[in-house]
């Protein structure tokens, strides 16, 4: 019944071909098969946001998406975004503002924030808080995270104008 399935996808701009069990989540596939361990698994029921990755340009829960569903898709993880430099400003802001403590939520938080920054660099603090409200952070109390996202947004707006 549960026979393995061939999948091909682009992960962080690299072509990936693998055989996967249908039940393997995209998050586990990324971590265990591709050894990209920056994507974290925090709850496996879609609530905590630690496993957030990009699938065809949009953030999704890696634990609620199957690896087989990513067949033919483009997947981006924190490693890919780091490599490309796309969110270097946001990462720098997280470092400067100490917006990560234990760092377990951080990759998911960064991917989530990146989507808002791309869509709406004028987002208010309240909008930032709402947008990241599906990402658990147990360490920071969120203020530093909101500060870092806000300062990045303001800088991007400043550069654009």
């Amino acid at each position: 019944m549960d026979k393995a399935v061939q999948v091909s996808m682009s992960v962080n701009s690299e072509a990936v071909n693998r055989t996967v069990e249908p039940r393997q989540s995209l998050a586990d596939f990324i971590r265990n098969e591709l050894e990209l361990t920056g994507t974290h698994v925090g709850c496996e029921h879609g609530v905590c946001g630690a496993c957030t990755v990009r699938l065809d340009g949009q953030i999704v829960r890696g634990c609620l998406t199957l690896a087989v569903q990513a067949d033919g898709c483009t997947v981006e993880t924190i490693e890919g975004l780091t490599e490309s430099g796309e969110i270097a400003d946001l990462q720098n802001a997280f470092v400067t503002r100490n917006a990560a403590q234990c760092g377990f939520c951080t990759p998911g938080m960064l991917l989530t924030a990146a989507e808002l920054l791309a869509a709406d660099p004028g987002a208010s603090r309240e909008e930032i808080r709402k947008h990241i409200s599906g990402n658990y952070c147990r360490c920071t109390g969120y203020q530093a995270v909101v500060d870092a996202i806000e300062s990045t947004a303001r800088n991007r707006l400043g550069e654009a104008s």
Binding site: L36, T37, G38, T39, H40, T77, I78, E79, T82, Q91, F94, V95, N98, A100, C102, G103, F104, T106, P107, L110
Partner: peptide, 12 residues
């Protein structure tokens, strides 16, 4: 040690 955490290079 924060840089590695924001780049997904933590070692959990």
């Amino acid at each position: 040690n924060i840089r590695r955490l924001v780049e997904g290079k933590g070692r959990f």
